[in-house]
Design a protein around this nucleic acid. Structure first.
Length: 198
DNA sequence: ACCGTGATGTTCT
DNA sequence: GAACATCACGGTG
C-alpha cells in the first residue's frame, strides 16, 4: 500500500514513470487531502543542466544526497513552492518533480486553500498542488517512507497510456532543455495546461 | 484561445 | 544584482 524506500531507490526515470497513478496524501488539522499523481518530471543530478544539483551540493540541495524517498521542497519566484521526491542511489542527487494531481480526497479543503471552485484547476501545476495540499518549506527533508501524515500509496490504479515530452520552464538549460523527461497520463484533464499533446 | 506582465523572496554569482 | 522547475489576471482576437 504505502510506498517504501525500495521504490524510490530505483532508477529515477523509472520512478518518475511509475509514480503516475500513485496517490499522494497529506493529513493535517484542516483535514485529509489526497490526489492521484498524473504528471512528473525527472531531474538527473550533475549530468543534467536543468537540475538544481547540476553544480553539486549546497545548503538548498543537501537532502538530495541522503537516502531516497525524502521531500525536496523549494520556493520559486518568491511565492510558490515546488515539491520533489529524492530518488535513485544514495549520494546520487536525483529527484522527481510532481507537477500535477487529480484531486481525490478533501477537495473542499483544497478549494478553500486555492480560492477556486474549479476542481480541474486545483492541482494542475507544481505550485498549485503544493498550495492545495499545504506542502510547505518546513517539510523540507520529510521522509515519505516513514511518515504517517505525508506519504504515497499504490491503490492499484494503472494508467492506460503514458505520454512523454520535454520539461516545462527550463528554456535556460542548453541541451538539457530538450531531454524527454516529463511524463504524464495521456488524455488526463488534470495535467498542467502547457505542452499538453493534442 | 493565446499572449504579456507583475507579484515576490531565496539562492547563487 | 540577476535569475528563477510559477501563477493569475487583464488585454486582444
Amino acid at each position: 500500500m504505502k510506498l517504501g524506500r525500495d521504490f524510490f531507490m530505483q532508477d529515477t526515470k523509472k520512478v518518475a514513470k511509475q509514480l503516475l497513478g500513485k496517490k499522494l496524501w497529506h493529513i493535517t488539522q484542516e483535514g485529509i487531502t489526497a490526489g492521484i499523481i498524473v504528471e512528473t518530471e525527472a531531474y538527473l543530478g550533475e549530468r543534467d543542466g536543468a537540475a538544481h544539483t547540476h553544480r553539486g551540493k549546497s545548503e538548498r540541495t543537501r537532502v538530495a544526497y541522503e537516502d531516497s524517498g525524502r521531500a525536496y521542497i523549494y520556493l520559486i519566484y518568491g511565492m510558490y513552492c515546488c515539491f520533489n521526491i529524492t530518488s535513485g542511489e544514495r549520494d546520487v542527487p536525483e529527484m522527481v518533480l510532481l507537477r500535477a494531481l487529480e484531486p481525490c480526497e478533501g477537495t473542499e479543503v483544497m478549494m478553500l486553500r486555492r480560492n477556486t471552485d474549479r476542481v480541474v484547476n486545483l492541482c494542475s501545476g507544481p505550485g498549485k498542488l503544493c498550495k492545495a495540499l499545504q506542502i510547505t518549506r518546513d517539510m523540507y527533508g520529510h521522509d515519505l517512507c516513514e511518515s504517517e501524515t505525508f506519504f504515497i500509496t499504490d491503490d492499484g490504479f494503472r494508467p492506460k497510456g503514458i505520454a512523454v515530452s520535454r520539461r516545462i520552464g527550463i528554456d535556460y538549460a542548453k541541451e538539457a532543455r530538450e531531454y524527454p523527461l516529463r511524463f504524464f497520463i495521456k488524455d488526463n484533464k488534470y495535467v498542467s495546461k502547457v505542452l499538453k499533446t493534442k
